[in-house]
Write a protein that binds this DNA or RNA. Structure first.
Lengths: 128, 128, 128, 128
DNA sequence: GTGGTCTAGACCACG
DNA sequence: GTGGTCTAGACCACC
């Protein structure tokens, strides 16, 4: 579990943690059925409040990524969320691409960066 | 000027407005030297408070996109911010791509969507 | 915390407060990691609106002097901004020196005053 | 007359102009009895509004630097303002020095910079 | 006319 | 508890 929180990040702590878990799932580092650290454990590791972890886990549960089994810890759910509607995915992508354009990149540079980034995301999950 | 604010959006109003202006600049709809509506005017159009617009404009000024001249109006800066370092651009891109992967898309689908989105962004600025 | 606001001062209140905090940091009275009063507390102490303090704190955060943690408090940043380029520092110095010359002082008087002023700035931080 | 206005400067235009004239007087470039350009002329040269120049000249007149002779133009006054009280001079000096300290300079560096700056100010007036 | 600042008071989000 | 956002409305400074 390589999760970190960054005080300079503008996102709230619980969001950073939830996003971090999602990234681990996306990369394949966390697979279906694998157990997550307990709320107490992770809170201790990251040096944050118990509540903060609980909020992150609850959000992930509501989104269907985790299953909390009473008294038996938290595991990555076997049934992944169904194919998400494209409309919801476009907004953050468009926003990210806009920043690249404003940063002075042309389309071919951006597409190359996207390919590079996708490779990096997948690579992490394979190295295990 | 096609700016809108969305109450369901999690971002604060002033951020939505600032992002909207940036998008207009990225698309070429707003070009160097063009005047923006006055804070009062835009506040009236969008149905938000005058101060909210002022905050958005000030942020854009600090980021180098606008020149706010006290007593005169607000115009798009002629000299755009220099090429932004890649590191700052990667985080939001990576985050957006992660969501696409979790949404069940494979890499080729994602790259196609990126190309589509880039075309859409540029298209807007050309229709004038 | 010896911060005051002066109605006769031409600078806006939030700027006076931000400058005051900077002066306390420069003198060493406020050191890395020290907590600042909450916006509500300081607003009450100075008799200004809560928002005015928030604006001052946000500006100081953007300049790298403070770390504002939502839900927790505000502390002096551990890593100070790196060495600032001389060009930005010269303008206000030149302006101040010009006034001394117009006020009828010769160079040796001015240099003596500068030494005196520097000593005063540092002195404050040591008396603790 | 080497006066310029800078749109990036935070000071209002009339203040930049007034400060510029003061700097020319301090350096000796403008001496007692010398005529200043007319309001119209200077407004045209700088590309600013007539009123803006008028405000700057009026401020300089109130401070005793200029004498406006009805229908006969504006000249640098022969009787310079008396020795200004030190208290008024200290505030901007202290503010400028604080910035140098925060910028990472130690006292000897600052004193050296002050000597350099004083020399530069005087030098300008001699080269004519 | 323009933008800038400030207030009082409300409500929300975070830890 | 903390800070963040927003409003309504006031007054000021600039051009």
């Amino acid at each position: 579990m390589f999760l970190t929180v960054d005080a300079d990040d503008k996102r709230p702590l619980y969001q950073q943690i939830a996003d971090g878990v999602k990234a681990l799932i996306a990369s394949g580092e966390l697979r279906e059925g694998m157990a997550l650290p307990s709320v107490r454990q992770l809170a201790g590791d990251l040096g944050v409040n118990l509540n903060t972890i609980a909020v992150a886990y609850r959000q992930l549960q509501e989104e269907g990524f985790l299953r909390v089994r009473h008294g038996a810890g938290t595991v990555v759910t076997s049934e992944r969320p169904t194919r998400i509607e494209e409309e919801a995915l476009r907004k953050p992508l468009r926003s990210a691409l806009t920043q690249w354009i404003l940063g002075g990149r042309d389309d071919s540079e951006i597409v190359a960066a996207v390919r590079r980034e996708l490779a990096l995301i997948h690579q992490k999950g394979e190295s295990r």
